[in-house]
Computed example of a mutant assay.
Amino acid sequence: MKKHYWLFFCFILLHLASCQSDDFSVNFDSENSIEANGSLAELISRATQNPTALDDFIDRSSSTKIEFPYQLSINSGEFIELTSEEDYQLVINELQNLGANYSIQFQFPLEVSLVNYENLEVSTPENLENISSLEENSSEINCIEFVFPLQINSFTLSNEVAESRSFSNKAQFYNYLKQLQNQNGFFEFSYPIEVNVENSIVSISNLTQLETTFANLDASCFSPILFEPSPINIQFEEFILNESFIITSFTDDGEDETQEFENFEFTFLEGGVISIFNLETEMNFTGEWEINADDGDLELNLDFTDSVFGELDDDWLVVEFGNDQFILEDGNDIFIFEKN
């Protein structure tokens, strides 16, 4: 403890000496002290902030966390009630069955919390969007937890105050670190401390051990994403690959010409090959397929050598896919494939 107070006393002397020159700066280097605006302090902040990124696949914002309980609807379907983080899996199960982009609607009013643990009541979708756009985004670390209570000794250059503080939870500690950052402060843990790393308690006796613990975290700890849809073109490829479809509707310039293709089964194979089988005559045909995703549009390019399928030769816009069907469109030409 004497060492700590000696360090802080040195801080004060150095800061007072800075009055002699506008160009004077304090260079701090101590075995166990941490600069509040340094890289290690930033990691500690990320490990103690409110975990607002965990539900990004639901609210599409890392600046807010939707507080339980609340209700949501996927693609205007039935409402699902979420009461804990375990219920996230209910939503993930639904999203995994959707091939296309999804939309989520909330039952308002609801409560959200921010990175700094502040809670706000939200009454409309517009209100939620405004909050998400204005608040600080999250970059949390999700597999290390400090064991509380914690005690630190700190010093701030802005007001020349040295103090010892004890914290009983993450919210208190996170917000105090933010305060130290704003005041160009330094702090030291009162060792030993304990951290929970992936459900295993680790005892830490000094700054070097703390730095090593963060350095050894798995990369996934820095990306707390429970569910992240694959790119739309990959989703669509997985949806059609090695699957057989029949055309249940085909409209050419407003004319219904479904019957011209009602006996054909289309199977999309590896290597961009389409195997076509006439269910009535048992004749086989082939074609080629390719998926492109440019400027936000998803396209399925079809190419057939047989003139029977000449009307299908085109670069088709994929309007929708999922629920065992996909819809293609090119101007006034629209047709629907359904899994057979």
Rank of each mutant, 00 (worst) to 15 (best):
N32H: 03
A47L: 00
D23I: 12
S30K: 11
S39H: 12
S25V: 13
L43I: 07
A41F: 06
L13N: 07
D22G: 01
H15C: 08
N32S: 07
H15N: 15
A47Y: 00
L13G: 08
S21N: 12
A17R: 05
P51M: 12
L43M: 14
S45W: 04
P51A: 07
G38L: 02
D22C: 07
T48L: 03
F28S: 06
F24S: 01
L14C: 09
A41E: 04
L43F: 13
L16E: 14
I44H: 05
N50P: 02
S33A: 14
L40S: 02
N50T: 07
L16F: 13
Q20I: 13
R46T: 02
A47I: 00
Q20C: 08
A36K: 01
A17Y: 14
H15G: 02
S30D: 15
V26Y: 10
L40Y: 05
A36H: 02
N32F: 01
C19A: 14
L43A: 08
S39Q: 15
L13Y: 10
I44F: 07
S21A: 08
E31D: 11
D23S: 11
S18C: 12
F24N: 03
A36C: 05
A36F: 01
N27C: 08
L16W: 13
L13C: 07
S30N: 13
H15R: 15
N37L: 03
L40I: 07
C19T: 14
D23F: 14
R46A: 09
A41H: 02
D23K: 13
E35K: 11
S45F: 07
E35C: 06
I44P: 00
L40P: 02
A41M: 06
N27M: 12
D22R: 11
R46I: 03
L14G: 09
E42A: 07
A53P: 06
I34R: 02
I12V: 14
N50G: 05
V26N: 03
L43G: 07
N37G: 12
Q49I: 09
E31T: 07
S45G: 13
I34W: 03
S33T: 10
N50Y: 03
V26L: 15
N50I: 03
E42V: 01
L40N: 05
Q20K: 11
T52Y: 01
P51C: 04
N50S: 12
F24T: 01
D29H: 12
S25I: 14
E31P: 00
S45I: 09
A41V: 02
A17E: 10
C19P: 00
A53Y: 09
H15M: 14
L43E: 13
G38K: 03
R46N: 08
I44V: 11
L43C: 09
A17P: 00
A47K: 00
I12G: 04
S45D: 13
A17S: 09
A17V: 06
A36W: 00
Q49V: 06
A41T: 04
D22Y: 12
I34G: 05
N27L: 13
F24D: 04
E31G: 01
G38E: 03
D22A: 08
S30I: 01
S18W: 07
F24M: 12
T48F: 04
L14N: 08
H15L: 15
I44Y: 05
F28C: 05
D29C: 04
R46H: 11
P51H: 12
S25L: 13
I12E: 11
E42I: 05
G38M: 02
R46Y: 14
L16N: 08
E42G: 06
V26G: 00
